Amino acid sequence: MPLQIGSVAPDFEAETTQGKIKFHDWIGDSWALLFSHPKDFTPVCTTELGALAKLKPEFDKRAVKLIGLSVDPVDQHAKWSEDIRETQGAAPNYPMIGDTDYNVSKLYDMLPASTSGDPSKRTPADNQTVRNVFVIGPDKKIKLVLVYPMTTGRNFQEILRAIDSLQLTAKHRVATPSDWKQGEDVIIAGSVSDDEAKKIYPDGWRAPKPYIRIVPQPR
Rank of each mutant, 00 (worst) to 15 (best):
A32K: 04
L33A: 10
F35M: 09
S36E: 12
S36R: 10
S36G: 12
H37I: 07
K39S: 13
K39A: 15
T42N: 09
V44K: 04
V44H: 04
T46D: 04
E48T: 07
L49I: 14
G50I: 07
A51D: 14
L52K: 02
K54H: 13
K56H: 11
F59L: 03
D60T: 11
R62K: 15
R62G: 06
R62S: 07
A63M: 03
V64L: 07
V64H: 02
V64R: 02
V64P: 01
L66W: 07
L66D: 06
G68P: 02
G68N: 05
G68M: 06
G68Q: 07
L69G: 04
L69W: 02
Q76F: 02
A78L: 15
A78M: 13
K79F: 01
D83S: 14
R85A: 15
G89H: 10
A90V: 03
A91K: 14
A91H: 03
A91D: 03
N93G: 08
N93C: 12
Y94H: 13
Y94G: 00
I97Q: 06
G98W: 08
D101E: 14
D101A: 14
D101W: 00
L107S: 08
Y108G: 07
M110S: 08
L111E: 09
L111C: 09
P112A: 08
T115N: 01
P119R: 08
S120R: 13
K121Y: 00
K121H: 04
T123I: 00
T123D: 12
P124K: 09
P124M: 09
P124A: 14
D126N: 13
D126R: 01
V130G: 01
V130K: 01
R131G: 06
R131Q: 06
N132T: 12
V133G: 00
V133T: 11
V133F: 07
F134N: 01
F134A: 11
V135T: 07
I136H: 02
G137K: 05
G137L: 05
P138W: 10
P138T: 10
K140Q: 14
I142D: 03
K143T: 03
K143E: 12
Y148H: 15
Y148W: 09
Y148I: 07
Y148G: 10
P149F: 05
T152V: 15
N155P: 03
F156E: 09
F156G: 04
F156V: 09
Q157F: 06
Q157T: 07
E158L: 14
I159N: 01
I159M: 04
L160C: 06
I163H: 11
I163Y: 11
S165R: 11
S165C: 09
S165H: 06
S165Q: 12
L166D: 03
Q167H: 06
Q167M: 12
L168I: 08
T169K: 03
T169W: 04
K171T: 15
H172N: 11
R173T: 12
A175M: 14
A175V: 13
T176F: 05
T176Q: 04
S178D: 13
D179I: 00
